[in-house]
């Protein structure tokens, strides 16, 4: 972070557990919610995305090869929850 700065930096998850996604997304945006660890009270303001949210931005052939199976395996209910969590964490 010190090396690159936070401008033009985003976090991308391939994680499918809503609780984990929520903690990590909040930590990167607002600082560690448990006020422990190196990011306690450090609001980096980084926006987090799930890779499956970014489909429209990835070349189709690469997407098909890398994510075709992952799109199918995630359960609809969990996917909706993750989308909601990430939008909130990004303050959208």
């Amino acid at each position: 972070m010190e090396q690159y700065g936070t401008r033009d930096m985003i976090v991308v998850f391939g994680l499918n557990q809503p609780a984990t996604v929520e903690i990590m997304a909040r930590t990167f945006h607002d600082g560690d919610p448990s006020y422990a660890g190196p990011l306690a009270g450090v609001a980096l303001g980084l926006k987090s995305y799930h890779i499956l949210e970014l489909k429209d931005h990835i070349p189709a052939h690469v997407w098909e090869e890398q994510m075709g199976m992952h799109e199918l395996e995630i359960e609809d209910e969990i996917w909706e929850k993750i989308c909601q969590i990430l939008k909130q964490a990004r303050h959208e």
């Binding site: 499918n16 199976m69 992952h70 199918l72 395996e73 995630i74 359960e75």
Partner: peptide, 12 residues
Amino acid sequence: KNYRKIAAMAVL
């Protein structure tokens, strides 16, 4: 999670 992957392959 692994059964979902096996099933996804069955769908594909």
